[in-house]
Design a protein around this nucleic acid. Sequence first.
DNA 1: GGCTGTCGTTAGCCCGGCTAACCGAGCCGC
DNA 2: GCGGCTCGGTTAGCCGGGCTAACGACAGCC
Lengths: 148, 148
Amino acid sequence: MEATTTAGSEAATALPSQLRLAVLRLSRRLRQEAVGQTTPSQLSALTSVAKHGELSLGELAAIERVAPPSMTRIAGRLEEQGLVARRTDSADRRVAKIAVTDAGLDLLTETRNRRDAFLAVRMAELSDDEREAIAAAVPVLERLARND
Amino acid sequence: MEATTTAGSEAATALPSQLRLAVLRLSRRLRQEAVGQTTPSQLSALTSVAKHGELSLGELAAIERVAPPSMTRIAGRLEEQGLVARRTDSADRRVAKIAVTDAGLDLLTETRNRRDAFLAVRMAELSDDEREAIAAAVPVLERLARND
DNA sequence: GGCTGTCGTTAGCCCGGCTAACCGAGCCGC
DNA sequence: GCGGCTCGGTTAGCCGGGCTAACGACAGCC
């Protein structure tokens, strides 16, 4: 209703709504494609650890944008599956650091393929223009997801 | 890392992964912005009912891509909040139809603004190009989320 | 050595997916 | 019209994943 935004007035107001719904739906759809017992949240955390190297639980919780207890549980499940190894920091024995294991790396690469299969198939059905639209949007989506 | 995201073949293989992670993160980020007691799933269902008009629970479950029991619960919560009204179909007394109430419509428009505020603010910070990238990608995202 | 702050965990709540099993209404067919 | 199949919806129960509140262990600073 209020068109005080910059460029496209009406489009600019509707766009957030559309984007939110689209992201939510696709996220739910992706969740349904789950394979194995490693859940999306776990995989996301695992990916972050692989990307950043050894991390404390607090750092990981911050990166994943979840509360500490949530990360405690997620990390616990990852450890149960042998995907990460945890050790207590030698300097500060309060902090627990976790790192990806070889098994974790394996699962990461393997799962990346399997898990993206659904999406890859779908995206193969898209036109070049559509695929480019996605490619162009991904960095922006990531920027929107970041807190700052 | 590299910005070689044009229409290359390598980009096509990495893209699904990137998209999946981006969507997941943004989805989680959006969830954190929740206001009030109406949850994302509830809001999504409510939106669908508003869009399609009176729907049976089964139809709504199909649209929202959730199992019937999940929709039963979601619809129940919506009804508790007075956002939808349910009635048993006169022709087939097995089916339960639900429609948006005035209060539901109110909340929908009001919440749309409030809930998208976070996203709207963020998107206002984007460049025109980035905003256009999102606008172009939204329909594709929706298509990806669809089952067929 | 004791206070205070911080990291992580535990306990406990809620939402939202799911499957399995059940109920009730419709729709047969005989 | 009565058995039996089908189908929509619900109930029961499980699990993951968010959260807050409260607590224990450690660090650090007087």
